[in-house]
Nucleic acid binder design. Sequence first.
DNA 1: GATGAATGAGTTTTCATTCAT
DNA 2: AATGAATGAAAACTCATTCAT
Lengths: 197, 197, 197, 197
Amino acid sequence: MPRKQEVNQQIRDERRERILRVAAAIFAEKGIAAIKIGELAEAAGMSQGLLYRYFSSKEEIFAVLVEKAVHSLIRPMHDILADTDKSAAERLHDLTRLMLDDIQACSQRHRLISQAQALPGQTKEALAEMGNYLQQGLCQLIVAGQQEKKIRNGDPNRLCVLYLSTLQGLAASLHLFGQPIRDYFPDVDTVYRLLEA
Amino acid sequence: MPRKQEVNQQIRDERRERILRVAAAIFAEKGIAAIKIGELAEAAGMSQGLLYRYFSSKEEIFAVLVEKAVHSLIRPMHDILADTDKSAAERLHDLTRLMLDDIQACSQRHRLISQAQALPGQTKEALAEMGNYLQQGLCQLIVAGQQEKKIRNGDPNRLCVLYLSTLQGLAASLHLFGQPIRDYFPDVDTVYRLLEA
Amino acid sequence: MPRKQEVNQQIRDERRERILRVAAAIFAEKGIAAIKIGELAEAAGMSQGLLYRYFSSKEEIFAVLVEKAVHSLIRPMHDILADTDKSAAERLHDLTRLMLDDIQACSQRHRLISQAQALPGQTKEALAEMGNYLQQGLCQLIVAGQQEKKIRNGDPNRLCVLYLSTLQGLAASLHLFGQPIRDYFPDVDTVYRLLEA
Amino acid sequence: MPRKQEVNQQIRDERRERILRVAAAIFAEKGIAAIKIGELAEAAGMSQGLLYRYFSSKEEIFAVLVEKAVHSLIRPMHDILADTDKSAAERLHDLTRLMLDDIQACSQRHRLISQAQALPGQTKEALAEMGNYLQQGLCQLIVAGQQEKKIRNGDPNRLCVLYLSTLQGLAASLHLFGQPIRDYFPDVDTVYRLLEA
DNA sequence: GATGAATGAGTTTTCATTCAT
DNA sequence: AATGAATGAAAACTCATTCAT
């Protein structure tokens, strides 16, 4: 019955995803504190007991949620860094577009990160690491860009912090105020100007 | 003999402030969901019962906290708008400095706003109003600045959203990552550049 | 300063009465469980602390309230029993009128008695005693009336129970349903018919 | 394997009934104010948490208790009214017997009604409606009985009020004084005499 | 594997009573 | 004597987690 096992595994994966998706939705609507296991199980169309076969605790769900959010930030950054065909300035421009698009598509994912402080130490550390990774990668690009004379001068770390904070702020605003922000969401070039020489 | 009324009132005011201060501190450390009435009362050096003479519920404490945070944003904005002696560009520069200083001094206050979604409808609406007020005031200044040819062209609302989001993002980052961010906190001119012509 | 003491005592008496009056009013409106010391003190126009100089506990207030209600039932009964000039039948007729008038004037007082079970043992016993006293007195009158051939035959205790329950029921109904009952409140003769030969 | 749905429902129903039964018993012994959720849960042999799966609040338990009491009054009245084979006088006699028997069997149920004032507005209104229904039905019968010359003359509403109050009073007395009243509980004919021509 | 009833520890909230002034 | 702030014990209520079926 190897076929059966495969099917089983697929069902398991789907369910896991569903739980995470529903959790993200509830979080988006009411904040992290409002995620109740009961509500979550119901919204995911399963019993509470079953939910515990997929995650060992509520905290774990949060942790995975944050981890996924983190990866969705790291992956594009990684790709951009690896894309050595382009100039640093071009890559920063690409990164900016990527991020802005992603924020508009799923602002809650980004916002989730800013609530991670409520989580246990391990997750927080992972988060800090991710922050460092992002910052370091970005710094490299900025330094390279500065050498290309395409990126403005100044401490690259400062530029980094400003740039990343701006992105995070946009995600938060978008989420908190919704349509009014969406209507006036800044375009790539406006944000990129933060970095431009 | 009963205590004199004014003395009483003074004590009341002090206690109320203390509760809010302690709540803000706990929030800063562990997030809004972690504020337990018991812990709060203990940290404020009073019984739980007494705390309920000052606030009718936990929710009310949150609401007041957010409201105060909102006012601390609105007031400086208001002052800047009223300061008609200066040019629009100067005033925007001043506002930027004011905000950055305030964020560095009390990032949790700013961050609190981004957790307001957990609150009941009324508070959320007040928040949205405040957002509108800020945005409108800022837009006026930006339009005026554009006429002075000191502020870059483009839809003023878009600039607004970007500018305010950047500030909020800085507050969030500062809070979330702490010292690393503080070390590279951007200076006024770097942020102001978002607006500059 | 004997005059001063007299005045003081008068003030004390008035306050005591006021507390009881207010307690009775709250009870009337919301039931015995709803009497909160804080509310009571405020409605009586004094501080909670002062209230405790007049009554040592909430329970005591209830006890006194019930006791007063009991006495207001016992006294007329006593008077009627003592009024040996009239025939038993006449006296029963008088008693009926007295009771009905009193119920209409202050139904809550009567109703209070039926909530006395919530009170401590002592008060309950006093209540039981009062019940016995009423029943015995009434029985005497009924037996005398039966000898006069003016009161219907049958076990006098049974008649007693029925008669007293009817009065209590009228008080309860009046209180619970208010005006609709007041409009159709039975007259003396209709009730007296329960006893009449 | 999950329990079968019908079995589950049956367990639920039984538990719900048990809670109500225990609540009624505590009420009977100590009054409505004395019902503590903790005590209730323990007496019903379940945890407090479980109890809240059956009733959303203490108030709701009261409300249901009163509602059930009300229905147990309305149903027999309804049946009697529908029993058109008999004369009005016969039906009133039947109703009287029914009521007296029920009062002796479960006086607390009747007494509960007189504590309904402690409940929220909605329940109180339902109660008033029930009062009206009873009164109207009874009035019809009385008027019919008067036409049959079997029921005494006089305003039927007044007779109604007196009759229903008498029954309520008997329930209250029975409960408050217990055995002494039970020993001398009036028989059907004695009470019926209130109505008889 | 799946259910949802059951638990119980933890949290908020209330309120009679006391106490410093 | 008078106040009303302060207490603390008790109550209501919530919810993550476990467990019998």
